[in-house]
Design a protein around this nucleic acid. Structure first.
Lengths: 156, 156
DNA sequence: GCCGGTCCGATGACGCGTCAACCAGTTCAC
DNA sequence: GTGAACTGGTTGACGCGTCATCGGACCGGC
């Protein structure tokens, strides 16, 4: 090592770049498909899924943000956009004067009901169908392990 | 299946969501780190790497776009931004009146020289260090295979 | 040579995410 | 209770990526 930097080997580079590209391509396809076929953007989809998972389809911005690992600012911006699209409604929180709820609307329920099968089908045909059970397991393991290390790392 | 939709199993969902989250978190960390430590955004980095890979550090927009799998519009926008930052310069193409070259500047070379070790080090410590050789291989295989299928798919 | 089709890149409008600043409501120490 | 610190959400500015559209250059057949 003449320059003291531990450069990536060909295999490492290949695997890393493959991983990055794969995600980009998959998400590109997926969000494009969702957008054109069901008029629900990927981010909208994620929020709506969270809202339908919970009784009455209402959740604090806070909790949504935590669940999706979004910044509160992003959540606030995004919900206002979703309100404009009629997917969701904002409600004040009686217990905490600062708080706010996002509540899914009927249109929101219809939108996700239409989008979900498309989404699932796409995830299968674009991704899952091409993996073996063992590969799937390895992938899940990798994700869990690396994310755990990321949480630990004081980085930043 | 009462509703005719082949919903994801718990394992499938777990693996898929893990994969997506992992990429988001990794890229978030990585680009944040590059941005704050070396003032080179991830996208800039990608362009600069391509330019340094080639003699004289000059490439057609076209070729850069193909290499990075970017839309030509994105490339055009991004290069104009990079020009403003002084990382790169635009040159007309004598052979093809429509064409344009991006040429790396001295500042561009310095920027990437500073960023590259950081980048490599981060990819290692955030990701590669936590994978076994076998896992790395599996990941590369998966990426290659799925991307191949994506190319085939007439989708869109 | 000319004309339709194609290709390269530019441009403007728009939606999205981040950052920093901010405000009002809450909590906690004292 | 009062003030300081904290928290939940908002806002505005900004950079980025996409889409649609455009203009100019190239290429093919005729």
């Amino acid at each position: 090592m003449t320059d003291g930097v531990n450069w990536l080997t060909a295999e490492e580079q290949h695997a890393w770049r493959g991983f990055v590209r794969l995600h980009e391509r998959l998400m590109g396809r997926l969000s494009h498909l969702l957008q054109t076929e069901s008029h629900v953007a990927a981010a909208d989809y994620a929020v709506l899924v969270n809202l339908t998972d919970v009784p009455e389809g209402r959740q604090r911005y806070q909790d949504l943000a935590r669940a999706l690992e979004w910044e509160k600012s992003r959540m606030s911006h995004h919900i206002t956009r979703m309100i404009k699209r009629g997917l969701v409604v904002r409600e004040d929180c009686p217990e905490d004067g600062r708080g706010a709820f996002a509540v899914i609307t009927e249109a929101g329920r219809e939108a996700i009901a239409a989008a979900a099968p498309l989404h699932v089908q796409a995830v299968r045909s674009l991704f899952l169908d091409h993996l073996t059970a063992a590969e799937l397991r390895t992938l899940a393991e990798i994700s869990a392990r690396v994310m755990e290390r990321l949480d630990d790392a004081p980085e930043r």
